[in-house]
């Protein structure tokens, strides 16, 4: 079927099987392979992209249902010579090893920091109606939808804390 996708500011017209997930459309049809397929069932977070600014699992979305949405992938956050603050912090803090979960982690963290800035509580927030503060416990919980088998978790938390602190100062 004919559909279109708005990805990283560009509109693409695609002729795809309706069964094509957003993830497979990105990887196989648009050659945007930064979004990874770790489980294909919403159980690992490696495919995390931003849909209208919110993080979602691209593997559990049909491409044809998102022709009106703005999609940002890791490629849209920054290239190798133009890293976003989070991307740079992941390098500095070694927030990855094999690198396969990494784009999903960074997309997830990008949106997660916005969620915190918007005052969204989490499972570990003591006061549902109070303010949230970006500490290691909060970040660990909020990043638990992104598995990392190499287990860069402590370094991922450090990288995100560093960027959160920078944002607070700014």
């Amino acid at each position: 079927m004919q559909t279109r996708l708005h990805v990283n500011g560009t509109t693409h017209h695609l002729d795809i099987d309706p069964r094509t997930t957003l993830l497979d459309a990105l990887r196989d049809h648009l050659r945007l392979t930064g979004s990874k397929k770790g489980c294909d069932h919403g159980q690992c977070g490696a495919c995390t992209v931003l849909l209208n600014g919110r993080r979602i699992n691209a593997c559990l979305a049909l491409a044809c249902m998102h022709d009106h949405d703005e999609i940002i992938t890791i490629e849209g956050l920054g290239g190798p010579d133009d890293l976003s603050p989070l991307q740079a912090a992941f390098v500095a803090h070694d927030g990855y090893q094999c690198g396969y979960c990494t784009p999903g982690q960074i997309c997830s963290a990008t949106a997660m920091l916005e969620e915190m800035a918007d005052g969204w509580p989490s499972h570990v927030t003591d006061d549902l109606t109070g303010a949230t503060k970006p500490d290691a416990t909060e970040i660990s919980e909020r990043m638990s939808g992104n598995l990392c088998r190499c287990s860069a978790y402590p370094n991922i938390v450090d990288a995100i804390l560093a960027v959160a602190a920078e944002r607070t100062r700014a």
Binding site: L32, T33, G34, K36, E75, D81, L83, D94, G99, P103
Partner: peptide, 19 residues
């Protein structure tokens, strides 16, 4: 030292088997 492959990995431009 930071990994030299870091910028590629964090930008999703390192090419894995199926890519």
């Amino acid at each position: 030292m930071d990994r030299p492959d870091g910028p590629l990995k964090v930008s999703g431009t390192a090419t894995y088997a199926h890519e």
